[in-house]
Write a protein that binds this DNA or RNA. Structure first.
Lengths: 332, 332
DNA sequence: TCCTAGTGGTTAATCGTTTAACCTGATAAT
DNA sequence: ATTATCAGGTTAAACGATTAACCACTAGGA
């Protein structure tokens, strides 16, 4: 049998209230009793049942983070950031992986809603998150990375994806490229859309016609990248530069280009996204656009804790993008 | 205010017990009442408070997985395997990252012990896990990947690490190497020890003297790998092959070898560990020893659920190793 | 001496469910 | 007609903590 507070109280010859008070320091308990209680607790390795505590206090000191993938290094960075901050603030973290499955995402949010957690950090699978409005009034939710302005009462923390697309494209244009292809992974999410808007704007400012045929969608895997590169380059033979929005895909693209006998950056210049360690080590090293995932995660948890503590309006946060120049863009 | 079962009962004109029975199907409730209840539930978006349910049923349908890192791709694979299986069996998963911090691991287990979860899957930080014996009697725990036989009542599921070390070493020896260096990341854990034992055995069977100086410890990062390679090769100039036990380190080793002007596999042959997608894409592609992380994870959850369901003795499981031959070992 | 204030400790209500035990009618069996 | 069986539904006791309200006692002040 599991030992409860009642057992401790009985053995120490005090009431359960007293035991509770010595554990939580909610009232001054004088010496003979106090240490007796502590001693019995020690003796039985007693640890309070948090299920009961949760029910009584209506709080679990647990937050959930719902992400669409575990294998993505950017997502991993965000998780790390949230983890750190949560730990720092005395929270546990319930991680849920939706695997880019919208239905599973809804189900998970519903499950989480049953008071198992004090709040949710969500990186949505798609743009289609109207359903969240059923929850945001009674459950603290913050959106991270991806978002959709239709959701009310849920602050967001994101990266400056417009800038990611804009700077990458501008950089390539400055190096003389005018036919720039884009390989991307997830349609209909704010991140992709932001980057494409930046791409478009950069083209426009330089008097280059936007051509939808220069965009290629693929799966966010090594093979997906290789395949996307192949079909795009077969279709659009004048492309001289590629902006690839996912680091796994970049690896696939590189291998495909080698296979096709195309030299990087001489025949095709490359700019990738993310800061996975392999970027510096491939041949050639890849120039990347980067957003700070850990920071995004940390800020997200901060926002969430504000919400949990009853702050009524928490503002949106957008973190800046930067560029790590290596060899693949033909700079040096 | 949050709506409770009592509210539903009142509005439907029945008792809370009836509401509970229609929700859980624990008793036959006849038509007029039944649909009335359902209707009210729908109307208020009522969802049962699982905290209360947990307290009453003494079960949370939640398992925890405690790992030492999120950035490691092998660990990621295991998480994925556990996740899948848990979902399949109707469990939620609470993920805890100890960051290779022993103290934090202990604290986490203690926290988890307070009945927040039905069971724990642990990949321990170190070999020093005697403390677990305080828990294994009253909390289902299964060890995954790393283990220590001092822990009683906790079944384990692991990979055949002896074979990993043995096969890698034998393979290199068959290709004529006699001075084989080892770069590894975490001392005093069963995985490392198993692989080193295999390494040693392979040497012995081929009449090669074991030399402790051929082993080099480093951090499990790209830089850690580079650094380890540098100091090892400076110290032991006769080394012609390297067995590297971590995929991030492998990337670092490759870049360092390039920097030193050493060709792979001509000057130094390489065998790595893991199956991260970049292995196929580096120059040259890396020959790897592999263990199936998803399978390990899935099996671990199966064992855990047996434990949770009261099965008293669950046997240990060891999954086989395999080898993916590519260019870095000089085979082709 | 009497009153007030403060301190240490206990009693009992409460959080929102589940579920064993009980009750009430109706139906079936004798 | 009497009893046994059964099915649908309710009552109330848990589950294990927290905490407001209360009580008894001591000490200090007037």
């Amino acid at each position: 049998m599991k030992v409860t507070m009642k057992d401790i109280a009985k053995e120490a010859g005090v009431s359960v209230a007293t035991v509770s008070h010595v554990i939580n320091g909610t009232k001054n308990i004088t010496e003979p009793k106090r240490s007796k209680v502590l001693e019995i607790i020690e003796k039985y390795h007693y640890v309070p049942n948090s299920t009961a505590k949760n029910l009584r206090t209506q709080s679990t000191k647990t937050a959930a983070m719902v992400v669409s993938s575990f294998t993505d290094s950017f997502v991993n960075g965000m998780i790390y950031g949230v983890e750190q901050k949560a730990r720092e603030m005395g929270y546990s973290l319930l991680l849920v992986n939706t695997n880019e499955d919208e239905e599973y995402e809804k189900k998970s949010i519903n499950l989480l809603y049953s008071k198992m957690v004090d709040g949710i950090i969500l990186s949505p699978t798609s743009n289609d998150i109207n359903y969240l409005n059923d929850f945001t009034e009674s459950m603290p939710i913050v959106l991270v990375n991806r978002y959709n302005p239709v959701v009310k009462n849920a602050p967001r923390v994101t990266g400056d994806n417009f800038r990611v697309g804009y700077d990458a494209t501008s950089h390539l244009i400055q190096h003389g490229h005018r036919n720039i292809g884009v390989i991307y992974a997830v349609p209909n999410v704010s991140t992709t859309e932001g980057r494409l808007a930046g791409y478009r704007q950069a083209l426009e400012e330089n008097g280059i016609m936007y051509d939808e045929e220069h965009l290629e969608l693929g799966y966010a895997t090594v093979e997906g990248g290789a395949k996307a590169a192949e079909t795009l380059l077969k279709k659009e033979k004048d492309i001289t530069a590629l902006f690839i929005q996912n680091d796994l895909m970049t690896i696939g693209v590189i291998s495909k280009l080698k296979e096709l006998g195309l030299k990087i950056p001489e025949n095709i210049a490359l700019i990738g996204f993310g800061d996975s360690p392999s970027a510096a080590i491939t041949a050639p090293p890849i120039t990347n656009m980067v957003l700070p995932p850990q920071q995004i995660g940390a800020k997200a948890f901060e926002s969430l804790s504000k919400l949990i503590n009853g702050e009524t309006h928490v503002e949106n946060i957008e973190l800046p993008a930067s560029m790590v120049v290596r060899k693949s863009c033909g700079c040096e």
